[in-house]
Design a protein around this nucleic acid. Structure first.
Length: 488
RNA sequence: CGGGGCGUAGCGCAGCCCGGUUAGCGCACCUGCUUUGGGAGCAGGGGGUCGCAGGUUCGAAUCCUGCCGCCCCGACCA
């Protein structure tokens, strides 16, 4: 029924906000631009975090934690970096409040002004590289492969839950290496980890590629990105991995002695994904009935609903099923609420995106059956209860596969090759999605296209095909197609 | 930072133009009974400094002035 969700067709942006709110993922908070992540939204993030953390550790990384505050002077040590972040920083100027002399509450105590202001980290390169200076002396100290799970603040003018919030949760990896090649290899390794996580767990296909100079991270020499396509045809940057060359090592004077007793600057990478992935997940799979979650990330994979209510003989069977499913590694919940009726529960769990619903009623007990409903296709079937455990386990795999296949098909349907600027504008304006076009490699053409069509180069794909052609904008020679789209 | 909208119960809103008993409605909540295989029904009940400050008036949710906040769209944005 979904009587409370705006349809995607009517208003995609409102649909997204409705899902976030009605599925109970997040709420607006008392603080502008900052959201409260509710238990369901947080559980999804926890699952993402656990999976990524496991992969980081498998590839040799360890976790650490650095301060929330960064001395203002640190930020300005790398010129491009400060330029990229200066406009969106929260600044701590005082450390004490006092009662207002007029009795109207508390005010900032002017005598408690900080010697040097502190920036609430928008990203931690500077504080971390300032620390690495003390940790690295020799090539024997390298590589340094550190990740941190943290919150950061970017004072965005316009925010949207999960996609862009003033404060968000993320992980940021910061690695230090003895050679240029090793640092590049590291950033590519994580690029691959991100892409595989997106496809294998989020069931979200991504295009892997490199950013153009204009779209690169502030302070990076190369930015690798995974770009996903949302249902409305807009692109979403889902994870970036940067090769920072020696920029931060120079800015913070981080040198090491190599095998030949020669002093050298350290090579660096940094990489991150954020709670934005939760937004990506919503906009990749969900529908007008609510959230749709891929089984691998769903906090609850299977919900068992006793019908009409939790009667003892039904509960006995339900508990038995739960145990058997859990033995197979399935995350199961039994809805024991005796007050709410089955119809309400069906709608509720559809809203919350639970992949499989098992309806177990008195009739089923008599017939030896059970109703199996899958969230992705909304298909329902009544099966022999004896086979429900293996059936459910297999169905979770099928749903995961189906969601990925559907998303892949959507991407195929919304990827267009164009050869002229008219075709380009038509595709961007009327169809949306990824538009594959020749580009002459200049910032000038890239910026003009952005100005005229709002489309940006999402990436130069890793599987870039050498192909003679001419730039759709300038008509100058081009060596191959790059990926354009309007983006979030 | 521009454009638009909104602040009245936990949520969603009406009332305001045209000032006048005790500020309403739906959902949610509490109690009871009947229900329960796709968002239950009936009965009863609780919950409000009408965003803040000032002004006009015998009387302000309503009129006037100022302020504050939030949301949406746009610009900006690793």
């Amino acid at each position: 029924m979904a009587k409370e969700i705006t349809s995607r067709e009517e208003n995609y942006s409102q649909w997204y906000l409705d899902i976030v709110k009605k599925a109970g993922l997040a709420d607006n908070s008392a603080v502008r631009g900052c959201m409260v992540i509710k238990p369901l939204g947080y559980a999804i993030w926890e699952n993402m975090r656990d999976q990524l953390d496991k992969r980081f550790k498998e590839t040799g990384h360890v976790n650490a934690y650095f301060p929330l505050f960064i001395p203002k002077s640190f930020l300005s040590k790398e010129a491009d970096h400060v330029e990229g972040f200066a406009k969106e920083c929260a600044v701590v100027t005082h450390h004490r409040l006092m009662n207002n002399p007029d009795g109207s509450g508390v005010v900032v105590d002017p005598s408690a002004k900080l010697e040097e202001e502190l920036i609430v980290r928008p990203t931690s390169e500077t504080i971390i590289w300032n620390t690495y200076k003390d940790w690295i002396q020799s090539y024997r100290d390298l590589p340094l492969l550190i990740n941190q799970w943290a919150n950061v603040v970017r004072w965005e003018l316009r925010t949207r839950p999960f996609l862009r919030t003033a404060e968000f949760l993320w992980q940021e990896g910061h690695t230090a290496h003895a050679t240029r090649d090793e640092a590049i290899e590291e950033s590519k390794l994580i690029h691959e980890v991100y892409a595989r996580f997106a496809e294998d767990f989020m069931a979200m296909p991504v295009i892997k590629g490199s950013k153009t100079a204009n779209e690169r991270f502030a302070g990076a020499e190369e930015t690798y990105t995974i770009e996903a396509l949302m249902q409305d045809g807009k692109a979403l940057q889902a994870g970036t991995s940067h090769f920072l060359a020696q920029n931060f090592a120079r800015a913070f004077d981080v040198k090491f002695m190599d095998e030949n007793n020669k002093e050298q600057y350290v090579w660096a990478s940094s990489w991150g994904v954020s709670t934005r992935l939760v937004g990506a997940l919503i906009m990749t799979h969900s529908d007008d009935e609510g959230l749709v979650l891929p089984p691998k990330l769903a906090p609850t994979q299977v919900v068992i609903i006793p019908i009409p209510k939790p009667l003892p003989e039904i509960m006995e069977k339900a508990e038995q099923l739960k145990k058997e499913l859990e033995a197979q590694g399935v995350r199961v919940k039994i809805d024991k609420d005796a007050k709410k009726r089955p119809g309400f529960k069906f709608a509720q769990y559809e809203m919350e995106g639970v992949p499989i619903r098992l309806g177990l009623g008195k009739r089923d007990l008599e017939n030896g059956t059970i109703e199996v409903a899958r969230r992705d296709t909304k298909a329902k079937e009544s099966i022999d209860i004896a086979g429900v455990v293996p059936h459910t386990v297999q169905l979770l795999v099928d749903i995961q596969d189906n969601l990925l296949a559907k998303a892949k098909q959507h991407r195929v349907d919304y990827t267009t090759e164009v050869n002229t600027y008219d075709e380009f504008k038509d595709a961007i304006e009327n169809k949306g999605g990824f538009v594959m076009a020749h580009w002459d490699g200049t910032s000038e053409s890239e910026l003009k296209i952005k100005e005229e069509t709002k489309a940006t180069i999402r990436c130069i794909p890793d599987d870039f095909v050498e192909e003679e052609g001419v730039c759709v904008y300038s008509g100058k020679p081009s060596k191959g197609r790059v990926v354009f789209a309007k983006a979030y």
